[in-house]
């Protein structure tokens, strides 16, 4: 029965995809994404408190839910791998799948964040490795997923005599560019930009040196460079999730396989 509902859920997403085209990512921009995120999170927490015996919660916490969440995502990413179709990530089916993945992950965290003891489940020790890995993954994925509508990437050509103040280009003995950097005017300030060294313009917004006038050869002046302005206000969440997962991975390396049979899959 639950699997039939899962199939209907994904089929509905497919139908929406066929009828309306890809998911309206930009429509969901702030504050709509935040509102839906709060509704989702509050709704799931309410279900967790009120309906632990419900079919929904029992299914979401079953091994089968975890396997379908990982397995279906794997299948979707395999399709993207073989075809190179990046647009798959903004289809209704993929969005539905990511929502399912996050829901399973959230409930698994709610159940398993501390050791279940026979006497009193509230007294169990916190399972730090589990928490770092699973909460980290949820925070990173949720930031990317709910924050995607607020991401914006612009490319600007900075020309000499205008925004581009200075450009340094060095070549290796083989003739390939080995280093380039630019001094550009950003908001009336002279800023040095290099690959791997972006400039933080304001909260959630960074400026990158993307490319330059590639026709310039040794000794020639570079006439323009291309700046990339990335607005990603949810990036701090993604960074926090990534750092948590790194800590969890370190614990995975140190601890190795460890079974706590009491807590995995009640």
């Amino acid at each position: 029965m639950p699997y039939i509902l899962l199939i209907i859920y994904l089929a509905a997403a497919l139908a929406l995809q066929l009828l309306t085209g890809s998911f309206p990512v930009s429509f969901m921009a702030f504050p709509l994404n935040l509102i839906f995120f709060v509704i989702w999170l509050a709704g799931m927490l309410w279900i967790w408190r009120a309906g632990r015996r419900s079919l929904f919660v029992r299914f979401i916490l079953s091994p089968g839910a975890t396997f379908t969440a990982i397995g279906l995502l794997l299948a979707a990413v395999l399709v993207m791998g073989f075809t190179g179709w990046r647009w798959v990530a903004s289809t209704w089916v993929f969005v539905a799948l990511m929502l399912y993945f996050q829901t399973v992950l959230l409930f698994v965290i709610l159940r398993g964040w501390r050791e279940a003891t026979a006497a009193d489940a509230r007294l169990g020790a916190v399972r730090w490795r589990f928490v770092f890995l699973h909460v980290g993954l949820l925070v990173a994925v949720a930031s990317a997923f709910w924050g995607a509508p607020d991401s914006e990437t612009q490319r600007v050509k900075a020309e000499r005599g205008n925004q581009l103040k200075e450009f340094v280009l060095e070549f290796s003995p083989e003739g390939a560019p080995s280093m380039f950097k630019a001094v550009v005017d950003i908001d009336g300030e002279d800023v040095e930009l290099k690959v791997n060294h972006p400039y933080k313009r304001r909260f959630g917004e960074d400026v990158y040196l993307l490319s330059y006038d590639a026709s310039a050869t040794v000794g020639e002046e570079v006439r323009y460079c291309v700046l990339q302005i990335v607005k990603e206000p949810w990036k701090y969440g993604a960074a926090a999730g990534i750092v948590m997962m790194l800590a969890g991975a370190l614990m995975l390396f140190v601890g190795g396989p460890r079974r706590n049979a009491s807590n995995d899959w009640e």
């Binding site: 690959v195 791997n196 990335v230 990603e232 960074a239 990534i242 991975a249």
Partner: peptide, 24 residues
């Protein structure tokens, strides 16, 4: 387990680096 831990280090360090180098 150990291999996946290192796979995770590799993938996440790649993500942090990609943000710094390419913006995402």
């Amino acid at each position: 387990y150990v291999g996946t831990a290192f796979l995770t280090f590799g993938m996440l360090s790649g993500a942090l680096w990609a943000k710094q180098a390419w913006g995402h």
